[in-house]
């Protein structure tokens, strides 16, 4: 497996060639992962008439940023951007708190019914949103919360994505050595203090994994915002992306692609910068 350490069976191909072959294979495999994004960016600076050129190309002789400008004049796109960001941040913060509390309790505190309650919580992971969306709409309508961001924040930070987070946190805390806590208890620390002062600082890898997964889940929500939000200045980005249509319902493709590019690039940049933490986070999160 680890070619680095491989010394036996040295006969065959020299290491350098094997490495080159590996890189070539990976590069070929990566094509379908990368080309759509590149195509999207390339098409967003093309004049509308060239987007559907056959055969498709990544090049244009007359690049234009007009679609980017159009995205902001056609809809309150900047506002929608802010909406998406702040909702994702709030959701992530609440999820981190709720899941680290519940995950810690399920992993470390013995109380009657813990296992049964854990199973109840886990059902939250299995119920498809299609089952709950209509009843939820009714509930939120009764509460007068339609066309506010509350449904998005509450459901996302307390139901499905948060349940996954609770699960991850529980797995992490179970794997944590018990001695640390015992020492703290000897010092007279109570549970809340142990959770906050001892366990949370140690849980950074798991917390960062949870943060990234939750942020992405909120950022990509599509069904829920379309259901709960009705006015453009309340929209979130995925929902706004589908609204770039002209008076006949025809798609304004270049504007849409420009807007899509603007939603994707920041996430990609953040990911590239943070990817080491992310992978390490998952690696040490106990999710294995």
């Amino acid at each position: 497996m680890r070619t680095d350490a491989r010394t036996s069976s040295a006969v065959a191909v020299p290491r350098r060639v094997r490495r080159a072959l590996l890189v070539i294979a990976l590069a070929v495999l990566a094509v379908p992962f990368v080309v759509p994004t590149i195509w999207m960016v390339a098409a967003s600076v093309k004049p509308l008439a060239e987007i559907f050129d056959a055969p498709p190309s990544l090049w244009t002789d007359s690049p234009t940023l007009s679609a980017y400008a159009e995205a902001f004049t056609f809809q309150p796109f900047a506002r929608q951007y802010v909406n998406s960001v702040y909702i994702a941040v709030v959701v992530t913060a609440i999820t981190l708190l709720v899941s680290s509390l519940a995950g810690y309790a399920f992993a470390r505190i013995r109380f009657p019914g813990a296992n049964a309650l854990f199973l109840v919580v886990l059902t939250g992971l299995l119920v498809p949103s299609e089952v709950t969306i209509v009843p939820l709409f009714q509930l939120f309508k009764r509460a007068g919360l339609i066309n506010t961001h509350w449904p998005l924040i509450l459901v996302t930070s307390l139901a499905a994505p948060c349940v996954l987070a609770t699960f991850i946190m529980r797995q992490f805390f179970i794997a944590l050595p018990l001695e640390l806590e015992e020492a703290a208890r000897l010092d007279g620390l109570g549970r809340p203090a142990i959770w906050m002062r001892i366990c949370l600082p140690l849980a950074k890898p798991a917390l960062s994994a949870v943060a990234i997964l939750t942020f992405l889940a909120s950022w990509n929500l599509y069904l829920e915002p379309t259901v709960y939000l009705t006015s453009p200045e309340m929209f979130t980005l995925p929902q706004a992306l589908t609204r770039f249509t002209d008076a006949y319902g025809g798609q304004m493709w270049n504007t849409q692609l420009a807007a899509a590019t603007m939603t994707v690039l920041p996430m990609l940049i953040v990911f590239v910068l943070a990817q080491r933490h992310f992978v390490e986070g998952l690696a040490h999160s106990g999710l294995k």
């Binding site: 708190l97 899941s99 919580v121 307390l158 948060c162 349940v163």
Partner: peptide
């Protein structure tokens, strides 16, 4: 909080 969330929203 987690349990209440699942009860109310799921």
């Amino acid at each position: 909080p987690q349990l209440a969330g699942v009860a109310v929203f799921v």
